[in-house]
Design a protein around this nucleic acid. Structure first.
Lengths: 135, 135
DNA sequence: TCCTTAATTTAGAATTATTCTAATTCCACA
DNA sequence: TGTGGAATTAGAATAATTCTAAATTAAGGA
């Protein structure tokens, strides 16, 4: 690239592989694991490799198009929702549901007061039993 | 075991190995990983194996003597604090600090209202830069 | 005391999730 | 046309954790 920072053909391109990964995440209600994404992406693009899925996930995350969430139990999951939000996790079936607690300003201030951290994000996790699992 | 449920010699014993693991966690300010715990426990009990550390951690967790915390980035950590509390994670150095937001009753109710989950726990995570890392 | 039994520990193999490596392909542009 | 950087690929490597099978331990009963 000579002078400007137009970036076609060079870095930052949304290649077919990256787009396939993006579509998979975008079209799913759930929070998929890398393995699930690989499976679905492969249906669109049979030659896609595992490494490319991971590369694409990193690319999409850095571009702010998706977000990554992970709690201890196992593997990271990927979320089409990139705005601040919270998660509820069912301790029976493992399902993860998005929700949003809007009145978090005061919470954040309280957390900062106690920790003296320069805040970047605040995130709530509710663990419990989802409506489906209590029959 | 004939009739009663006295359980010496059978299940649930605090063996020397389990006790060593417990002491390591109890005496640390930080939230240690399994690898760190293995290293320290080995100093007390040179013959202890990795699997026993994991078994002991599970035993101690089930007994409510320690708690496990884990966020995406890498391995689980173990905490001597078992009461409800929250965590702040430094995005520069990775340090994890405990704090406690006391006014969580209303929060929990709001989260339950939105998700319809039968709640078991609510946990906050603050990400940001710790006091040490901003010089 | 000796035997039986169940719990526990051990070492190492297996598994799972993720990252790394090196070779290959792709494509804009000189 | 050919050069170079970016991206993709397959498979190896790594890291964390779990599993397996054999050995050890300790209590309680014959």
């Amino acid at each position: 690239m000579k002078t400007g920072d137009r970036d076609q053909g060079g870095a930052r391109t949304l290649t077919p592989q990256r787009e396939a990964v993006f579509q998979v995440i975008r079209e799913s209600e759930d929070h998929l694991t890398a393995a699930e994404i690989f499976e679905s992406a492969r249906r669109r693009l049979p030659s896609i490799s595992y490494a490319t899925v991971y590369n694409s996930l990193k690319f999409l995350k850095d571009s702010g198009l998706i977000s990554e969430i992970s709690f201890g139990n196992g593997s990271s999951r990927y979320d089409r929702e990139t705005e601040r939000h919270d998660h509820a996790i069912c301790t029976r079936c493992g399902r993860m549901v998005d929700f949003d607690l809007t009145e978090t300003g005061g919470l954040l201030r309280a957390a900062v007061r106690k920790t003296r951290f320069k805040p970047e994000s605040l995130h709530l996790t509710l663990r419990g039993v989802c409506p489906d699992c209590r029959e």
